[in-house]
Computed example of a mutant assay.
Amino acid sequence: METSAHVIRVRVPMRWSDMDAYGHINNVEVIRMLEEARILAFGPPGGTGAPGTEPPVPLFNTVPPNTQSLVSEHRVKYLAPLEYRNVPADVDIWFSSVKGASLAISYLVLDPVTNKPCVKAETMLAFVDGTSGALQRVSAVQRELLGRYTGPSVFA
């Protein structure tokens, strides 16, 4: 499968404990893998964790202090079982919508051996002020940063 210019490909480890009784990655663990892909591609949310390597798109480094990123919605469609492998899964990730105070992130999870799409998903994310809980607008700096990595929804 070819990746488009707007796609970031990250590799997310599959853990032995992620497997269900059928040898597939459990559906709950798929959601964890989406979170890991988001962090690998866009960085840790403001101020948590120790410094590490810069992500391809340092989205979370552009938010004001005391900002929280909150998931407001997940949509997941399982296309084929994601078999446990002892190698990381390939996850293609990009922005599929940038609105006033939220953004949508699309994912395509691929089997790392067969390259077969196993999961397509979308996450709605919003930034809020950690003290007041008020929604924060997506800034012009963030919009510019995201522009190159914006494409159609995985559900389009």
Rank of each mutant, 00 (worst) to 15 (best):
A89F: 06
P51R: 09
G46S: 10
G130Y: 04
L79V: 08
L34V: 03
S106P: 00
M19Q: 15
A134F: 04
V71E: 07
S102C: 03
H74L: 14
R137S: 12
M19E: 14
G46A: 11
S139T: 15
H24E: 08
T131V: 13
I8M: 03
V71F: 10
G23Y: 08
M1T: 10
P81G: 10
P13H: 03
Q68L: 15
V12Q: 01
Q142R: 04
P56G: 01
T123H: 03
V113E: 15
T3D: 11
V30W: 01
M19P: 01
K99D: 14
D129G: 00
I105W: 00
R137A: 12
P58S: 10
F60N: 10
A126H: 05
R143P: 05
V71R: 05
R38K: 05
P81F: 08
F95G: 00
G23R: 09
F127G: 01
V76H: 01
A37R: 03
R15K: 11
N115I: 02
A156E: 15
I25T: 06
N27V: 13
H74I: 09
G100Q: 13
S17H: 12
M1H: 12
T3N: 12
T131G: 06
V91N: 03
S153E: 11
E35V: 05
S4H: 14
P13V: 05
N61G: 14
R85W: 10
N26D: 14
Y149I: 04
P58V: 08
P51A: 10
E83N: 12
Y84D: 07
A101P: 04
R32H: 14
T48A: 08
G100I: 04
L40I: 04
V98N: 05
P152V: 11
L125T: 14
A121M: 01
G151F: 05
P13T: 05
T114D: 11
L146D: 00
E2K: 13
P51V: 09
A41L: 03
G49S: 12
T48S: 12
P51M: 10
S153M: 11
E29F: 10
S72I: 13
C118M: 04
T114R: 09
R11G: 03
V109K: 00
V57Y: 00
D90M: 06
G147D: 14
R75K: 14
K116A: 07
A134D: 11
N115G: 03
K116N: 11
V113R: 11
T48F: 12
G151A: 11
G147R: 14
P112D: 03
S96Q: 04
L34I: 03
F95S: 03
S96A: 09
G23Q: 09
S69G: 07
G23L: 08
M1D: 08
V98D: 06
A80F: 07
T131I: 13
L135A: 13
H24T: 08
V91C: 06
I8W: 01
N26R: 08
Y107S: 00
F60S: 01
L79R: 15
P64T: 07
S17W: 06
L103G: 09
N61E: 14
R9F: 00
S139Q: 05
V119K: 00
Q68S: 11
M33G: 10
G47K: 04
V138N: 02
C118D: 03
M124G: 05
A21N: 04
L103N: 08
S139G: 06
L146T: 02
